[in-house]
């Protein structure tokens, strides 16, 4: 059994050495296909991550027509906190607002000197529970707020966020469809490349059948060869992704102004890396299996 296995592996390796061009074509095809699918996966995962962060940062701000008196504030906040949709509430007095403004201006804060802090409106900031961060719930809250408080203006990034979320959903959908197509295309290309290698070796296949080799004896080395090529393709795609991610994409994107400071682009987890390499093996096996079925007849 062991000797058999050794013989099969040696033959698979020798076949690969004998047809280096065809072998590298198959390996590279698989590497490119796997890298493309994995890249798309990374894009979707990272955009989703970004959207989750942005959703977390969203809050509803109600600017009040008139700052409430100090003793009314706790009651108002308690009322609002009782809303099931609300996670936390904070009151921003005109003074607080002015301080924030000042901080944000930094070196130019002197511009604000001599200005009356009452110039800025008092506001209430509401952080919503994640499950209520959508248009329908926010509209309902707004309605209630307008009834209970004298609201001057309401701000929230909802419209933009909804659009962004539908974009992410579409991206996920396109990702699944496109990824599926890419994998099918990869399988097709790999199967054809392996078919080419089999075509180049049709004499060998014919002679093997002629001297009484069983189907298993004929097929196993080719399947092994497909699996080894798939393994190599998977490893190459992984190394390529790692290098391009750490050397180019991560560096340039992490310094990009759109991403928050503590936001790190996600790379494939260890398990996902294993899956990538394993997919290569499966791809190679399926590729040789499908072409062997058509080529090897006794």
């Amino acid at each position: 059994m062991l000797e058999r296995m050794r013989y099969f592996i040696l033959r698979a390796l020798r076949n690969m050495r004998q047809w280096p061009f065809l072998c590298s074509a198959a390996v590279l095809t698989m590497a490119v296909a796997l890298a493309t699918v994995a890249t798309f996966f990374l894009v979707v995962v990272n955009v989703e991550q970004l959207s989750q962060r942005w959703t977390k940062e969203i809050q509803l701000i109600a600017y009040l027509q008139k700052a409430p008196s100090r003793q009314d504030i706790p009651a108002i906040l308690n009322d609002l906190k009782a809303y099931p949709e609300v996670d936390s509430v904070s009151y921003v007095s005109p003074d607080d607002a002015m301080n924030r403004f000042r901080q944000r201006l930094g070196d130019d804060a002197s511009l604000l000197e001599g200005l009356n802090s009452q110039l800025l409106p008092a506001s209430i900031e509401l952080n919503l529970r994640p499950e209520f961060r959508d248009q329908e719930h926010i509209s309902r809250i707004i309605e209630r707020l307008e009834n209970s408080l004298e609201v001057d203006d309401l701000r929230y990034g909802q419209k933009w966020l909804e659009r962004f979320n539908s974009f992410v959903n579409m991206l996920r959908f396109v990702g699944i469809v496109l990824g599926g197509f890419l994998l099918l295309a990869a399988l097709f290309i790999v199967s054809n490349t392996i078919k080419l290698t089999l075509y180049a070796r049709r004499d060998e296949l014919e002679i093997m059948a002629l001297v009484g080799a069983t189907m298993r004896f004929i097929k196993v080395p080719f399947l092994l060869e497909g699996a080894i090529q798939g393994l190599l393709g998977g490893l190459i795609s992984l190394v390529f992704l790692m290098l391009s991610f750490s050397l180019i994409i991560s560096r340039s994107l992490n310094s990009f102004w759109l991403t928050p400071n503590d936001f790190n682009l996600l790379f494939l987890s260890f398990n996902q890396q294993l899956i990538l390499v394993f997919s290569g093996v499966v791809l190679g096996l399926l590729g040789s299996l499908s072409s062997l079925r058509r080529f090897v007849r006794i």
Partner: peptide, 18 residues
């Protein structure tokens, strides 16, 4: 079929060598 062929040697005009 393989077991039948193991009892039969075949030689061709074009040799059929690898």
């Amino acid at each position: 079929i393989p077991y039948l062929r193991r009892q039969i040697g075949v030689v061709f005009q074009d040799f059929k060598l690898l």
